[in-house]
Design a protein around this nucleic acid. Structure first.
Lengths: 201, 201
DNA sequence: CATGAGGTAGACCGATCTGTATACCTGGCA
DNA sequence: TGCCAGGTATACAGATCGGTCTACCTCATG
């Protein structure tokens, strides 16, 4: 598992950085296929030639877009995991980080899930990024609960994954407000009743 | 809530039916923006004129596509709910129906979630169908658990909704196998520990 | 027999799509 | 001084986009 060589990355010159910022915003808000390279260039204040000199193709811009979001999400999450002191707190920190991330970056749900809806071909270079992030999240949650529930870590990790993914979708589609907070509470409840004794206070 | 007048529907002549079948398959497999009307016509064995005589626009084809999937899903679910004898069994029947539905119709996840990724405009006529189905599902799950947990039905319904949506995403992205079954087990566990006594046998 | 609904066949429209080309400018560096 | 990376500006190519049009066919029904 988790083989798939990482997609090629591209050096980010100033022009490329501007283009990637604009492309990321447009792709997320309107969808990948709905956004043309001319629009990206215009919004970035960059010429189309610069786009193709830096990225080579629109597909490569999509790859950089998703890889960039993935990297920024992991960087957003990491310090919160470092700060949390107990395994339970680390799990809850994931849900809290997602809530804050969604509030500031992602009103329309998970960019990976949304991109997956538009990319059917598993050989597309962006596919590995999408599945890679989900695989990473499942592994993370499973590893986080292993200390408190070694016997049921796999099952509990998967349940937390479902709650988390469901909350992202519920947030994006505005199914009900406070989806991430609700998922966090359910996660806390699961952690309290599973495995070891509940925290002292 | 749940106001939004239902989008206009179109009479399904034989040609329209063939077109809708092809459009549904293509939209689901490749995404809405990635499929052109010429391709739909060719795959359906129908001329483009027939497409526009029946539907008037591509947007209207999208509306019929989503409305049709919604109707078929509800028709798929209804007899299973009628057969189940206890409230708990009815909730579990939803997860089992989703599992069977996904196995035969939806390897790429929920068509509503996927469509939402491509439609940003809430004034799009398809938007009401997407949000309407999610709202209906949340209401359904909440109403199903009300008899067993009247005091916490809203919260429990939302938790079941998160598990269900998460399982649909996990299935579509192949995060781990058996996602719907895992969600079903967690739902069963929630129903057993919440509210009234567990079933006699 | 006339009519109209539903259909085929295929040309056509303007707009937009991804991608390429030519010509020129700027600043850092060997 | 010369060079080259990175950029602007703009025109262009070929394909495809959603959508319209004319001409003709078939068949059921009044």
């Amino acid at each position: 598992m988790s083989t798939a060589n990482p997609p090629r990355r591209v050096p980010l010159t100033p022009g490329a950085r501007k283009a990637l910022e604009a492309a990321g915003r447009l792709f997320y808000e309107r969808g990948i296929h709905a956004v043309g390279v001319d629009l990206i260039a215009a919004e970035a204040g960059v010429t189309k030639k610069t786009l193709y000199d830096r990225f080579g193709s629109k597909d490569q811009i999509v790859v950089e877009y998703l890889a960039d979001r993935d990297e920024r999400w992991r960087a957003f999450l990491a310090p919160r995991l470092d700060t949390a002191r107990t395994p339970q707190d680390r799990v809850l920190a994931v849900f809290e980080a997602s809530r804050d991330w969604m509030d500031t970056n992602s009103p329309r749900g998970c960019s990976m899930v949304n991109a997956h809806a538009e990319i059917d071909d598993p050989s597309h270079p962006a596919y590995a990024i999408i599945t890679g992030q989900k695989e990473w999240m499942l592994t993370l949650l499973t590893d986080l609960v292993r200390p408190v529930a070694p016997a049921t870590a796999d099952s509990l990790g998967r349940t937390l994954m479902l709650l988390h993914e469901g909350a992202l979708v519920a947030h994006g589609l505005r199914i009900f407000p406070g989806a991430l907070d609700h998922a966090r509470e359910q996660a806390a409840s699961l952690l309290a009743t599973t495995g070891g004794p509940r925290p002292a206070s």
